[in-house]
């Protein structure tokens, strides 16, 4: 049933035209929603760090690693937000694919540094992979602590 519905739903989604009864969402709306989602993710991770520290949970190694994971998620979100901004909202940097393995980054002479910033921030997996790694270590420690202290969570 779901298999039959999927092509129909995809067609409706990709070929939808403006409906008179509803508000139209142009191209920037998706970008704004995505950027807002990044901001929201950053906020929620910041809040998690606050509560972990406020409740004194970071005395446990498991929760301490989860705190580090949250910190790296914040950094990754900031990085991703910046990349999206440079790529799609700012006109300061002109990015062109020259070939399969070559790109051109053109910025005004006074903003040459923007090319380097963009290049570095494109390596965002250097932040989100450690975040997941810390989360994994944290969960493993919690699991071990739950074995050590039967019934507790560290």
């Amino acid at each position: 049933m779901l298999c039959r519905l999927m092509p129909v739903l995809a067609m409706i989604s990709f070929t939808a035209d403006n409906a008179l009864a509803t508000q139209g969402h142009g191209h920037p709306a998706g970008l704004y929603a995505h950027q807002m989602a990044h901001v929201f993710f950053m906020f929620s991770m910041g809040l998690l760090i606050f509560w972990l520290r406020h409740r004194g949970l970071i005395r446990s190694a498991g929760w301490r690693y989860i705190q580090y994971a949250s910190l790296f998620f914040i950094l990754w979100n900031a990085d991703a937000f910046l990349v999206h901004f440079i790529e799609e909202q700012s006109t300061a940097l002109d990015i062109t694919r020259l070939s399969t393995w070559k790109i051109s980054l053109k910025a005004p002479p006074e903003m040459q540094w923007l090319g380097y910033v963009y290049y570095v921030t494109k390596l965002d997996h250097l932040l989100c992979v450690p975040a997941l790694l810390f989360l994994y270590i944290g969960l493993k420690r919690l699991l071990r602590e739950s074995f050590d202290q039967s019934g507790g969570i560290g």
Binding site: W101, I103, S104, L105, Y119, H125, L126, C128, V129
Partner: peptide, 20 residues
């Protein structure tokens, strides 16, 4: 400036696999 996209591609692909 012109730059190689290989590092970006490598980090992106390997990082994505690691993420999964």
């Amino acid at each position: 400036m012109n730059a190689s996209s290989l590092p970006i591609w490598t980090v992106d692909v390997i990082g994505s696999v690691c993420m999964i």
